[in-house]
Amino acid sequence: MKDDYYDILGISKSASQAEIKKAYRKMAVKFHPDKNPGDEEAETKFKKAAEAYEVLGNEEKRRKYDQFGHSAFDGSQGFGGGGMDMDDIFSQFGDIFGSAFGGGRSSGFSGFGGGFGGQSGRSKGGNLRIRVSLTLEEVANGVDKKIKVSRKKKPDDTTFKTCTTCKGSGQVTRVTNTILGRMQTASPCTACGGSGQILDKKGSGTDAHGLKMTEEMVSIKIPAGVEDGMQLKVSGKGNEPVGNGIPGDLIVLIEVKEHEHLKRDGENLHYDLYISFAEAALGASKEIQTVSGKVRIKVEPGVQSGKILRLRNKGLPNLNGYGIGDLLVHTNVWTPQTLNKEQKEFFEKMVGDTNFEPDPKKSDKSFFEKVKDMFS
């Protein structure tokens, strides 16, 4: 259950907007990242305070919260349960506590995922997205893929120089007078886009930003057990930024090809085995396909259509390493659609024979019971 916003800020439900703002500033200063470097508990309290203030500091949202509580937003308003981004906090509320730390973004902090000083003046290049198709066998074993990627890079003959507007910091500051005193906030420099550098000399074949499209072979390690639709990230293999910064990431969308014989259900696999009347009555040895090759299984005499044979650990590995699934073999007795004279005479003689009359036992599960067991 989420903490009450009033309790987070340590105020009563009748608190005025000025009291709410004062309480938030007090908490923001106390748990500010500059004062608590590397302290995860302080980071959590810092984010929760911002989440509470974002709602209570807005009259309309506060009315909804007082009436319906957290359900008033259903995760679509506020900050969705404290999952705030530090840049969001400083961009929206930096003027509230900026004077205490010389700006909305500190010049000396490098924690909380690199959202502050360690990244100050550094921009990030754009991400790239590609699709990678895998066979079920590759999913079972994991695979290293080498993919040719076209990405923007800075050639050696492109040079940059320090931005004269922000002096290389990537930020410009603004000082305003408020009821709480002089407040200083920082925002990305519009002249250099926050990179701290501007283009000095364009290299040959580059675009307006001094970047050149190049092809590069990227090695992607895909772990066993991935599923269709999953996304993997290869850090630093996206486009390079303008000036001083870090490259974007390569986002890999996984597509799993449909297998000819096997159907996937999480870590389990399903296989349809068709056998004849004779094989069902006499028993048989049948070869079936698995993700690790073909294996032979024994079909017992008198097997019924719909019986499921379970081959342990013949499925797919769990992505998080929690074991391996099973291969479920579904037995289907094939009824011939045409009979020759001799075959027809044989079956006509069997009509009424007690061996050919259905006689299900209580231990014989119905089709619906088998389906229920399969999904439970």
Rank of each mutant, 00 (worst) to 15 (best):
F101S: 02
T335C: 10
P360K: 03
P223Y: 12
Y65L: 07
G210E: 01
Y5F: 15
A23K: 01
E287K: 15
R105Y: 12
G126E: 12
V329F: 09
Q231Y: 10
N320R: 12
G243V: 05
V291L: 03
V291P: 01
G121I: 00
N313P: 10
A72P: 03
K314Q: 14
A140Y: 02
R296Q: 14
S235W: 08
L269F: 06
G126R: 10
I251F: 08
K124M: 08
A186S: 15
R122A: 04
M350H: 03
L180P: 00
F93L: 07
S187F: 13
K153S: 07
G81M: 07
M27H: 09
E342C: 00
V252Q: 02
S292E: 11
I130K: 05
G225C: 03
E41I: 13
D200Q: 13
S91T: 14
G203Q: 01
E267A: 11
F112S: 04
D373Y: 04
Q119H: 06
Q171C: 04
S110K: 05
K26Q: 11
D7P: 04
E54V: 07
E287V: 14
L136E: 03
K233I: 14
G98M: 03
M27N: 11
I11Y: 07
E357Q: 15
S12V: 03
L211R: 14
L134Y: 08
D364E: 13
P33R: 02
D74E: 13
R151S: 14
E227R: 13
T335W: 06
S110E: 10
Q92C: 10
V139W: 04
S169I: 02
K237R: 13
T178E: 09
D272F: 07
I20P: 00
L311M: 13
E51D: 14
H209N: 11
S91R: 13
K307R: 14
D4H: 12
E287H: 07
L199E: 02
I297G: 03
G293A: 06
G113V: 06
M374S: 04
Y6I: 08
I251K: 06
K372V: 08
W334M: 09
Y5D: 01
F68S: 14
Y5V: 04
K30G: 01
I220F: 06
N141L: 02
Q77T: 01
G121N: 00
D228N: 15
V303A: 09
G103C: 09
P188Q: 09
L309K: 07
G168H: 04
